[in-house]
């Protein structure tokens, strides 16, 4: 089952989606409008690139310290949490055990993110990824 569909089957998951490197190509399911999903994709892409930049700095400071490559991030709000793993995101309610379940599923389904983050994210746009990037 596709990861977004699988996430949306869990009670308490508000929306889930997938975004590409530029943040302007996305797909989603759940309680978001197209415009909000576009904004969420841009936000997720910006945060993902930011924490990856930070992890590269850590790595130059302490090689193989265990943080790089970054797999994802979580923003915990008062009632809502945003989780991102690779190029997938989900908005979930703060229900007991839901965050752990969602993170377990996202990590298992998306798999380990490699060092080539930009290639990975850009690939969702289709075409020749190497040519587009380099």
């Amino acid at each position: 089952m596709h990861i977004v569909k699988q996430l949306m089957a869990i009670p308490g998951v508000i929306a889930a989606g997938e975004y590409a490197y530029r943040g302007d190509r996305f797909s989603y399911q759940g309680a978001l409008t197209d415009e909000f999903a576009r904004m969420a994709s841009i936000l997720c892409r910006a945060n993902t690139l930011s924490v990856n930049m930070q992890s590269e700095i850590f790595d130059s400071f302490a090689e193989n310290c265990g943080c790089r490559p970054v797999q994802g991030w979580i923003v915990r709000g008062a009632n809502v949490t945003v989780c991102a793993v690779g190029n997938y995101f989900s908005f979930i309610e703060n229900r007991e055990e839901l965050l752990n379940d969602v993170m377990t599923i996202m990590r298992a389904k998306v798999g380990d993110i490699g060092d080539d983050l930009l290639v990975n994210l850009y690939a969702k746009l289709g075409g020749d990824t190497k040519e587009a990037l380099y």
Partner: peptide, 17 residues
């Protein structure tokens, strides 16, 4: 939409920790 503020934290998920 509400539900985010006040923020209750942030987490970065690395490769091992």
């Amino acid at each position: 939409q509400g539900g985010f503020q006040p923020l209750q934290g942030f987490s970065v998920v690395g490769l091992e920790w």
